[in-house]
Each structure stands twice: as C-alpha cells, then as structure tokens.
Computed example of a mutant assay.
Amino acid sequence: MPWAKRDWETHIRKLCRDTARIFWTSHAEQQMQERHIAKAVALDVLRLGVIRREPEPDIRTGHTLCRMERFCAGAPIGIVVALEAEGASACIVVTLEAEGASACIVVTAINL
C-alpha cells in the first residue's frame, strides 16, 4: 500500500533530525544565500512542516515529490523533497527557487 501524506511527513522529519543525512550542494547554498534563507530555517521547514499537496511521481526520475510547507521567519516557505524510495536514508539539497512570495528548495533523498 502506498504511503499517505502523513507517512511521508514522518519519514522526512525523521531523516532531517540528523543533519549528517542532509547534503547541501553549493548551488543550493548559493540560492539560499541570495534569498536570505538560513539553513536553520530550511531545517525548521523540513522538521516541522506539513505536506498539503499530494505527493506525486517525478516522470523523469521516478522519485516521489513531496512539498513540505511552513510559515517560518516571517514568510511561507515550501521545500520539495524528492525521495528515491519510501525508505530512503539520506537527503541531498540540490537547488532553491523563488516562488512568488515564498521560497522552494528541492531536496533529493538517496539510499546510502
């Protein structure tokens, strides 16, 4: 049976408790710096955010895309997490894009 939104939220939150499981690319760090979004804020969204939209498959990679959302540091922030599988054990933050008034970070989870 496929995971529900709450299952994905729980898994993402669990992964992001340990920062050793999150790998930030230089591009993501640059984009966060340009948009004045600290890693602590991004981590807050990943650890405490909710998934409002239904997770959906990425047709190019086959990963499941989940958008964690939270109002943090005075702005709505959404982080898109691409998970390789339901049991992925690590995340790679690969990019950050502005989306209207909010920010969107794309995270890819991998199995180590």
Rank of each mutant, 00 (worst) to 15 (best):
P2W: 08
V94C: 06
P57H: 10
C104G: 00
P55C: 11
T95N: 15
R17D: 12
I51K: 07
G49F: 06
L112V: 12
W8C: 05
P55I: 09
R35N: 08
G74M: 12
W24R: 03
P2R: 13
G87C: 09
E99L: 14
K39D: 03
E97S: 11
M1F: 06
A82V: 03
C66G: 04
W8M: 05
T10K: 13
A75K: 14
D58C: 13
N111P: 07
E54T: 13
V106G: 01
L112H: 12
E69I: 10
M68W: 02
H11T: 04
E86T: 09
D7C: 03
V93M: 07
I37T: 01
D18W: 04
I37P: 00
A28D: 02
L112C: 08
E34H: 04
V41G: 01
A20V: 01
V107E: 04
V80N: 02
T64A: 12
V106Q: 09
D44G: 14
D7Q: 12
E69N: 06
W3A: 13
A20W: 01
F71G: 05
D18M: 04
E84W: 03
L65F: 12
E56G: 09
A90F: 00
K5P: 05
I59C: 05
R6F: 02
A82L: 05
H11E: 09
L48N: 15
F23N: 01
L112P: 15
A28T: 06
I110F: 10
H11F: 09
I22Q: 01
E9K: 03
I12W: 03
V93G: 05
K14C: 02
A42K: 03
D58K: 07
G49Y: 07
G49E: 03
A98C: 10
H63N: 15
L96Y: 11
M1G: 14
A28K: 00
C72L: 08
T64G: 04
L43W: 08
R52P: 01
E84D: 13
H27P: 00
V93W: 02
W3T: 01
V106Y: 13
S102K: 06
E69M: 13
E34P: 00
E69D: 07
V81N: 03
G74H: 13
I51W: 05
V93Y: 00
I59N: 09
A38S: 13
H63T: 12
A73D: 15
I77V: 15
G49W: 04
P2Y: 09
